[in-house]
């Protein structure tokens, strides 16, 4: 009985410790960001690794998600004789939800796992301790540029996802299924609001970018320095990021659109 209680307590303390270390890490990463403006070179390298290399998967999935939305939306809307609103449906679902969320899930899988593995392995091969020996702060030198790169890349990737999705929906709806070209765009422009829809989508993707990169860096930095530990940390990054994105998406949507 007491053993069970003790075990529960240990789990609770462990979780609290994780949360605390996570926030302390975030704080020291944020403290390292101003120094980056003096060495933008580090940031450019990381934007390449995090953003540019994720672009292909984002672009391809965005286009196909848009095309599927076009097909399915047309099928349902044509039953009500409302094919003309296909543009609204495709654009609203992409800009509000699918763009930020799916892009963040792909980002966690593509870039987040890579970040964790890279930093975890740096820890396992004692490169991080080596940096410390040379009086270089590894948080400032290694983590901060990666964090800022994730924060910058994520909204851009989500915007690319949404834009290509709209083009994919346009291609299927107007090109293949014969929805009127003018109605597709004009209905979309009439119903989609810059503040309500586009800005909120960008805010969402910013939050997701922060959370995904944060989780990836935390897992990598505190990974057990063995090959098994790194592999576990990588798995945890993808699982935790995906759950965090989906949960936060609900909260953000309730805050933004539910009044």
């Amino acid at each position: 009985m007491l053993d069970a209680l003790a075990r529960l307590g240990r789990i609770g303390i462990g979780i609290l410790g994780h949360i605390g270390r996570g926030h302390l890490l975030l704080l020291s990463i944020l403290g390292g960001i101003p120094a980056l403006f003096r060495r933008p070179r580090l940031l450019v390298d990381q934007i390449y690794a995090v953003g540019v290399l994720s672009m292909l998967i984002i672009a391809v999935s965005g286009t196909f998600v848009g095309m599927v939305l076009g097909l399915q939306g047309y099928y349902i809307l044509s039953q009500f004789g409302a094919e003309q609103t296909l543009g609204v449906m495709v654009a609203a679902s992409l800009v509000r939800e699918l763009g930020p969320v799916v892009a963040a899930l792909l980002f966690a899988g593509r870039a987040g796992s890579a970040l964790t593995a890279e930093i975890g392995l740096m820890g396992a091969t004692e490169q991080l301790s080596g940096l410390e020996m040379m009086a270089v702060n590894p948080v400032k030198r290694i983590l901060a540029p990666r964090f800022l790169a994730g924060l910058i890349s994520m909204p851009l990737l989500a915007a690319i996802f949404s834009a290509l999705g709209v083009m994919g929906g346009y291609f299927v709806g107007v090109g293949l299924l014969g929805v009127d070209d003018g109605a597709f765009w004009s209905q979309m422009q009439a119903k989609i609001d810059l503040h309500e829809d586009v800005y909120n989508g960008v805010i969402k993707s910013l939050v997701f970018g922060l959370v995904c990169t944060w989780i990836a860096l935390f897992q990598g930095y505190y990974a057990t320095p063995t090959s098994e530990g790194v592999s576990r940390a990588t798995t945890r990054t993808v699982v935790h990021s995906s759950l965090a994105v989906l949960g936060l998406d609900f909260i953000l949507t309730a805050l933004m659109f539910g009044d």
């Binding site: 450019v44 390298d45 953003g51 800009v95 890349s153 915007a159 422009q189």
Partner: peptide, 25 residues
């Protein structure tokens, strides 16, 4: 590498611009 990063960021801003102008008017 710099050119690639630059074109990535340009593509992102073009996409944002597209969303602002074409999609939401």
């Amino acid at each position: 590498l710099e050119i690639l990063v630059g074109s990535f960021m340009a593509a992102g801003f073009v996409a944002l611009f597209f969303l602002a102008m074409q999609v939401s008017n």
